[in-house]
């Protein structure tokens, strides 16, 4: 099938798409957007988190056919030109990165949290990030980064 999907504000097309392949695969392998990571592929780790019609989802669980005609925003779409989003900048500043595999998903999840709750409590941060697993267990710096981003915005 030909898949039509708006990604980071731009209408995109991909040809010869198998409707059963994942949205994550489409983004990474067909549209050249490798920011969203392919880790558990079962919706457990959150590394593939993207906005689909403005709500964060695990893109590994969304069939390409289900994304037809919809809006996707990936971690690549958060920065404005060379200016990082405050969440991204805070991850850099806090050193909230170890191996980095979970980082894009956490950045999108934290971005969504701060849109909805600009001044989250620690409990709210923990709950909002519960679906994003860091196998390096670097959660303390990640919490620091989200607190810093909340203060910056």
């Amino acid at each position: 099938m030909r898949l039509n999907v708006t990604v980071n504000g731009r209408p995109r097309q991909a040809d010869d798409v198998w409707p059963g392949e994942s949205l994550l695969y489409v983004l990474r392998e067909r549209l050249g957007l490798p920011g969203s990571k392919n880790a558990c592929e079962q919706g457990e780790c959150g590394s593939c988190t993207v906005y689909l019609d403005d709500v964060p989802v695990c893109s590994c669980l969304v069939a390409a056919g289900q994304a037809e005609g919809r809006q996707v925003r990936t971690v690549e779409g958060l920065a404005e030109g060379d200016r990082l989003d405050p969440v991204q900048q805070s991850f850099v500043d806090a050193g909230a990165v170890q191996c980095g595999f979970c980082t894009p998903g956490l950045v999108v999840a934290a971005h969504d949290l701060l849109r909805r709750t600009p001044r989250p409590s620690d409990e709210e941060i923990r709950e909002a990030l519960a679906g994003n697993l860091c196998r390096c267990t670097g959660y303390e710096k990640i919490l620091d980064a989200v607190r810093t981003a909340a203060d910056a915005s």
């Binding site: 919706g43 689909l52 964060p56 669980l61 519960a130 679906g131």
Partner: peptide, 9 residues
């Protein structure tokens, strides 16, 4: 139940 990303789907 689940996580935010999963409840959204």
């Amino acid at each position: 139940g689940a996580s935010g990303q999963l409840r959204n789907l």
